[in-house]
Design a binder for these strands. Structure first.
Ligand code: FES
Ligand code: FES
Lengths: 146, 146
DNA sequence: CAATTTAAGGACTTTTTTATCCTTTATTGT
DNA sequence: ACAATAAAGGATAAAAAAGTCCTTAAATTG
């Protein structure tokens, strides 16, 4: 459903939000450790998310990645679109050149329903809210036990 | 959502069913043309589907791929699982080692709902039924116009 | 049985995705 | 101004997915 890059991006941004709510900026290394993702690859993804203003960053000592009021309204939908594009929302699930109502593929009508639920899932909570759930211990970004 | 291989597989099997309902066996080349997919790659995928008994095949002149009573009960779910595995149904959407109810990732509860709809989409109609819809012109496997 | 046809199988190539590394640029505190 | 720190950027490497090609095996027809 999501590329690895997107999965890392989602977990990273939620972690950044969690730390930002506590007043901390965080470095790429710390993020990668806490979301169980490869550090250099994670850094690349964060770069892109900063460019698209999903999060903020600051260079130099005491710098790092952060999220604040300017990023408050973003949802997973925005983030997923930046990294994986809009194929999940707009493209034909069977790979036809475009998704069309008048010339639908065998999955079209059913996919439309699924998409509604996917978009719902990705928009009903802000990234900040998801971070608050992690903060409350209701959800986790990684499991290091097994 | 689905790999290219899976998309080709889905369209191919529906095409095979459509032709089988008309009493025809079909070769890899014809299939690939009608579903707008690369021929050798499609052949590879069909090989795997035959091995897993989703469809049947026959070598030699008048041979080809077909589907009959023995394959009647299969759905897209079976086909997707053969090609893409069960990650879409069972794995954690954010890549945690496993999907868990007691230690859920931020998307877990929402993903569960989406999965219900995805499984619903993939199981409510048999592959044969999907072929009948194509036969009736209600849906298409390819569009060569644009 | 021989010739032909078509799937099966395996080796290989290309492209995309994932991942790493190194250099540069900006920022901070002293 | 200087040293230290952290992100940005670009170049590369490894792995996986997508796609191709060639040889072999099975079935059919005459
Ligand atoms: S045409 Fe295939 S999903 Fe709409
Ligand atoms: S734990 Fe991530 S989807 Fe269930």
């Amino acid at each position: 459903m999501f590329s690895k890059a997107c999965q890392y991006g989602i977990k990273s941004v939620i972690y950044i939000w969690k730390q930002s709510l506590l007043g901390n900026k965080v470095g790429a290394k710390e993020i990668a450790e806490h979301v169980d993702a490869p550090e250099p690859f994670t850094a690349k993804i964060l770069q892109e998310l900063v460019r698209k203003k999903i999060i903020g960053s600051q260079k130099g000592p005491t710098g790092g990645f952060y999220a604040d009021g300017a990023h408050e309204s973003f949802t997973l939908r925005d983030l997923v679109e930046v990294i994986d594009g809009d194929g999940l929302f707009k493209g034909c699930s069977l790979g036809l050149k475009e998704c069309s109502e008048t010339n639908p593929c065998p999955l079209h009508h059913e996919i439309k329903k699924v998409r509604t639920h996917v978009v719902d899932m990705l928009t009903k909570k802000s990234l900040k809210q998801l971070a608050q759930e992690v903060e409350r211990g209701e959800t986790v970004l990684a499991r290091f036990d097994f």
